[in-house]
Simulated assay, not measured.
Amino acid sequence: MALLAEKPLSYALRENARVISALVVRSAVTRFGESRLGFIWILIEPAAYVGIFLLIHTQLKAHVPFGDNALLFILAGVFGFRMTRGISRKTERAIISNQPMLTYPLVRPLDTLVATFLLETTIWLIICSLFMVGLAISLDRDVIVYPGEFAEGMAAILYFAFSFAAFNATMSALVPRYDTFLSMLSMPLMLLSGVFFMPAEMPPGFQAVLWWNPFLHCVEWFRTSTYLDYHALLSKSYLLGLSTALLTAALVLERLFRRKIID
Rank of each mutant, 00 (worst) to 15 (best):
P109Y: 12
I126H: 11
P214I: 10
R141N: 06
A5W: 06
A115L: 11
T122S: 04
S193F: 13
I261V: 09
G241H: 08
Q207W: 10
A166Q: 03
A28P: 02
M184Q: 08
Y159K: 08
Y178I: 05
E34T: 11
T244C: 12
L125E: 14
S97N: 03
A166E: 01
E120F: 00
T170I: 10
T103A: 15
R259L: 13
M132H: 02
G148I: 01
D179V: 05
G77Q: 05
L102H: 04
E92R: 07
E45A: 05
L240I: 10
P8Q: 03
E220M: 03
C218Y: 15
T180P: 03
M190H: 09
E220I: 00
V133K: 14
L9K: 04
N16D: 08
T91V: 05
R31I: 06
S27Q: 05
M190C: 07
A166P: 03
S21A: 05
T224Q: 13
V209H: 07
E254A: 06
I261K: 11
G153H: 05
Q59P: 03
Q99V: 07
A208V: 11
F73G: 01
L130H: 07
T84K: 12
V219I: 08
D111L: 09
W211H: 05
L158K: 15
Y230K: 15
L72S: 09
A115T: 02
R108W: 09
F222K: 10
S235D: 07
G241L: 01
P46S: 04
W124L: 06
F160D: 07
I52A: 06
T103G: 15
K61A: 04
E152C: 03
F164I: 03
V209P: 08
P176M: 12
I262M: 08
S27K: 05
E149F: 14
F150C: 02
A161K: 13
Y178V: 07
P147Y: 15
A200W: 13
